[in-house]
Design a protein around this nucleic acid. Structure first.
Length: 407
DNA sequence: AAAAAAT
């Protein structure tokens, strides 16, 4: 299905064309029409599937074709991270380039001038606001945000926002909004807490299910069963011998990002790190340098595991096994975007074997194990404890914790 | 068990 078949406004089609979009992705095909019909939506869809355009396009179209209050905020998009807010704002700018629809990203960590700029827009009116929760609340508490005309609310990566403890913040923001509005909720997963939130916010939503909790098959996955102490040397080896366009190395802790970055820099690898301890301006600089290919390797926390869309990442390395199985799928999903293929390596220490086993349960299949070259020395066996499969079936006995023996 | 998010 082509975008030209969807009956979208001419000015919007120009923007779509300029962005190089032609064919609607499955998410877009399923979501755009019900949004244009004014329905509330609850959609499970992962990023990289064209999800952002799936809600931006009908939003912009409605604003172009329906009379609306130009001195108010008409649509609010709430997202979990600053980087995601920036990215969506950029897509918004591109798509709406040939239209009169205005937009702004509202998020914390700026240098002081950003707050004033945001305040001006929120006071004088801007069609679409893309925000992180805390910063939006800061503005709302000041009492100047023009919300009377708001007719659209989008919650993106909603499950992630719940994980991050934004439930109360989101409900607080919503308490400021007019009741008569269209609500769009996007979430990779639908745990009970998510359902509960959806029930409070959405009105007779159309349910759309696209996300399969499975990574695309075109990603070549390999897990290396290793000792903790071998990890750094192996990463160095991969990064210096394997050829790739762009690589990203994920760690589960900021501390690990910092340490590993130091080690890699010492090995003369051209890398940058990104995590929330950096100044916001540094975060943006690093991401820009990475997008511009000034640097090819990024070492990151899960701040980048969801939502961030960068082309040509063909190598993802998990220095740590992610804590959450869903995060594994999100992390490796940074590669093999659109038409391309990619490789995802995961280094698994002895302590992390059980986590990998959990992930394999979620995937419904084992992650192929890779062989570590002999030069790195002997490696441990893969011998995880049987992963628990939810609420125990068949009245299994509680297992006593094994004695710990350190060698 | 850790990440991120308001000043």
């Amino acid at each position: 299905m082509k975008f030209t078949d969807l009956g979208l406004d001419e000015r919007l089609l120009e923007g779509i064309d300029a962005m190089g979009y032609e064919t609607a992705t499955p998410v877009q095909q399923q979501v755009i029409v019900p949004i244009l019909e004014g329905k509330d939506i609850i959609a499970s869809a992962q990023t990289g599937t064209g999800k952002t355009a799936a809600f931006l396009l009908p939003l912009i179209h409605q604003l172009l074709t329906h009379p609306h209050e130009t001195h108010d905020i008409n649509a609010m998009i709430i997202v979990p991270t600053r980087e995601l807010a920036i990215q969506i704002a950029e897509t918004m700018e591109g798509l709406s380039y040939f239209t009169s629809v205005s937009s702004i990203a509202v998020y914390g960590g700026g240098d002081g001038t950003s707050f004033a700029t945001e305040k001006k827009a929120l006071t004088q009116g801007v069609d679409v606001v893309i925000c992180t929760p805390g910063r939006m609340i800061a503005h709302l508490n000041m009492g100047y945000v023009k919300l009377k005309g708001l007719r659209y609310l989008v919650l993106d990566e909603a499950d992630r926002m719940l994980d991050m403890g934004f439930n109360d913040d989101i409900m607080k923001i919503i308490s400021f909004l007019p009741r008569d509005r269209q609500n769009l909720l996007f979430s990779a997963t639908m745990p009970p807490k998510m359902r509960e939130m959806a029930r409070k916010i959405l009105h007779e939503p159309v349910e759309i299910n696209i996300a399969v909790s499975k990574p695309p098959e075109k990603i070549i996955q390999k897990a290396f069963i290793v000792y903790d102490a071998q990890k750094v040397a192996i990463i160095k080896d991969i990064l210096s011998t394997k050829s790739f366009q762009r690589a990203i190395v994920f760690c589960s802790k900021k501390q690990n990002v910092k340490q590993l970055s130091q080690e890699l820099k010492r090995a003369k690898l051209s890398i940058e790190q990104i995590h929330s301890d950096l100044e916001q301006s540094q975060r943006e600089q690093v991401l820009q340098d990475y997008r511009n290919k000034k640097i090819k390797i990024l070492v990151a926390t899960d701040i980048l595991s969801r939502g961030i869309d960068i082309e040509d990442i063909d190598l993802v390395i998990n220095f740590d096994v992610p804590n959450d199985g869903e995060d594994y799928i999100h992390r490796i999903g940074r590669t093999a975007r659109a038409e391309s293929t990619g490789t995802a390596f995961t280094l698994v220490s002895e302590k992390e074997q059980n986590k990998l086993a959990q992930i394999e349960v979620l995937l419904g299949q084992p992650v192929p194990k890779g062989n570590v070259p002999e030069e790195f020395g002997p490696t441990p066996e893969y011998n995880p404890r049987k992963p628990r499969s939810g609420s125990g079936g068949g009245g299994g006995k509680k297992r006593f914790s094994r004695q710990r023996k350190q060698q």
